[in-house]
Write a protein that binds this DNA or RNA. Structure first.
Lengths: 193, 193
DNA sequence: GGCCGTTCTTGTCATTTGGCAAGCCGTAAC
DNA sequence: GTTACGGCTTGCCAAATGACAAGAACGGCC
């Protein structure tokens, strides 16, 4: 596995040149996860700023009743880490789990911070990643409030069809904010009839 | 109006000393808004990194059916700006509106960026603000999925009772993801009988 | 191959929430 | 004062979604 995808990902934001991307990528180490392996567990402090090169992952948390609720899905080519735990150095409430065998590139908090201090362009990149995640979550929240479950499912199908190929439907259901039974009926096309 | 609250707010994150806070705060300019005045309108680029010293505000957006949906409330002592529009320099989808007469301290994007480049401790502060907002939104999303409307209302009442004193209930309703009729029934205590 | 556990679907019924429309009430305008 | 408007509540009914349980389908494992 080469660092090609990682370098390309760094460049794509526009803040980082090819030469810089190579130097930055050099700081990342390979990280593998077998299917069902955990990148992060609740109670621990997230210490991987992880670029997913191949595979598929999800984040989830248990609510007060003990229900497993999916909070995010990650396809190859995305950054995977728990923002609050990683940057605040606090125990995570979430788990991050490999849904397939995964490989990617990882850097620890200390190293990332050193890079941020040394490289203005990488700081910009880091901020852009935070902003992107934040904006995506806001969109999802707005949809949760204004769209019905069936419409949210359709939108997901359109925007990230890969999810349906890798994640069990019950995880998709909790991500969408419905029960697995309801999702099953939505998929059938007749939510009642 | 003095910059006392702003300076205190800067210090409270732990990254910034009193002396630094004074220097940083010196870069902020006063900004007033009459009740119903707009800090930001959809289509424009957010260019105020605004510390709300006194007053109460809300952010909202129109969904595809034209419904006014409240996306956030802001009490005095909070930072008010639209993250994606401000940092990406893209047109905002949201409005930010004064619910009461407001005053606070504002800095523009260019100036903020200059400060970020010049002052590592302020960068840390800025990142902490992003992370805080992100984490809050994640919590809200989890509650939206796992808690019923009545429970979400109770939680809001417990965590931010000021909102109920300043915002019309229909705004609170859309923030919670319910209709104003439903909120009315929830408040009555008997969501049906 | 046969067993077992998980996932997914489906039926039945209850609960939650929404859509309307009417009415009440307070405030602002004239 | 009277009028007009917006905000809030409430009744009635419909739609959306959940809870629970049974059974089919599938995959891993011995």
């Amino acid at each position: 596995m080469t660092k090609e995808k990682l370098q390309h990902f760094l460049q794509r934001t526009g803040f980082i040149t090819a030469a810089q991307a190579e130097e930055i990528a050099a700081q990342f180490r390979p990280r593998m996860l077998a299917r069902h392996g955990m990148l992060l567990e609740a109670g621990k402090v997230s210490d991987d700023y992880f670029f997913l090169d191949q595979g598929f992952m999800r984040a989830f948390a248990y609510d007060t009743e003990g229900n497993d609720t999916t909070t995010a899905f990650y396809a190859a080519g995305q950054l995977v880490f728990e923002v609050a735990s990683f940057f605040n150095r606090t125990p995570s409430r979430e788990y991050i789990q490999a849904l397939t065998d995964c490989q990617g590139w990882s850097i620890r908090y200390q190293e990332l911070n050193a890079l941020f201090h040394a490289r203005p362009e990488f700081r910009e990149f880091g901020r852009a990643m935070l902003v992107r995640g934040y904006a995506g979550l806001k969109d999802r929240m707005l949809a949760m409030i204004t769209e019905q479950a069936a419409a949210r499912y359709e939108a997901l199908l359109w925007a990230q069809p890969e999810i349906l190929q890798h994640a069990p439907l019950k995880n998709v259901a909790s991500y969408l904010g419905v029960t697995d039974s309801s999702l099953s009926r939505i998929r059938k096309g007749s939510s009642k009839k």
